[in-house]
Each structure stands twice: as structure tokens, then as C-alpha cells.
């Protein structure tokens, strides 16, 4: 069973991303959306945790939410892939279930 996890909180606001990464199985995928997109940015106090996680899980970030917040693709951690809503839908299809870390 492969899971797509969604995280919609800034890592500086709540522990959603940290908890998600702690409980995500190897080979799972994580999509950062809404305020979760801040967790995809390079050079923050949270990016070390995210970079380490990239060896176990695939991480995606929702482009529309980045754009809305002025988060440029150049500021994203290497290895994180930007997807649009169609890509979000595709990710839910490619995985067996979705676990939203609200």
C-alpha cells in the first residue's frame, strides 16, 4: 500500500509536517499545499528535516499555492517537484490512499 500524505501547515506554525514525515512509510509521497508550501523552501530552520526525508519519501509542492504566496520555484529545495492541480489529482490516483495531516 502506498500513501499520498498532504500537509497544509507551515512547519513553523504546527508540527504537521514533522509528524507526517515521522509516520510516513518508506516510498510514500508527501504533497505540500496551502501554507504547507513554506516547508518546501530552502535555507530555513525546517529545510534540514525536509532534505533528510527526501531519501525516504517523494515530496511534491502545489505550484498554485507557491505562486499565490510569492514563493519562487528557485527557492525550493532540490528534489522537491512542483505540481499543478492536475498533478495533485494524478498523485491521488497513483497512490492507494490519501492521508491528510490536518
Amino acid at each position: 500500500m502506498s500513501t499520498l500524505h498532504t500537509v497544509n501547515k507551515s512547519p513553523f506554525d504546527r508540527s504537521s509536517l514533522e509528524t507526517c514525515l515521522r509516520l510516513a512509510g518508506k516510498g510514500n509521497a508527501v504533497l505540500l499545499l496551502e501554507d504547507g508550501v513554506y516547508g518546501a523552501m530552502r535555507g530555513s530552520n525546517a529545510s534540514g528535516m525536509v532534505e533528510t526525508a527526501l531519501s525516504d519519501v517523494s515530496i511534491y509542492v502545489l505550484g498554485s499555492d507557491m505562486k499565490a504566496r510569492g514563493v519562487d520555484v528557485d527557492k525550493i529545495i532540490d528534489g522537491i517537484k512542483v505540481v499543478d492541480y492536475k498533478g495533485f489529482v494524478d498523485l491521488t490516483v497513483e497512490h492507494d490512499k490519501v492521508n491528510a495531516w490536518l
Binding site: T92, V98, A100, L102
Partner: peptide
């Protein structure tokens, strides 16, 4: 086949 939850 899939449940997708949107919330806080």
C-alpha cells in the same frame, strides 16, 4: 476509491 480531506 479515494477519499481526499481538506481542512485545517
Amino acid at each position: 476509491e479515494r477519499l481526499v480531506v481538506f481542512g485545517d
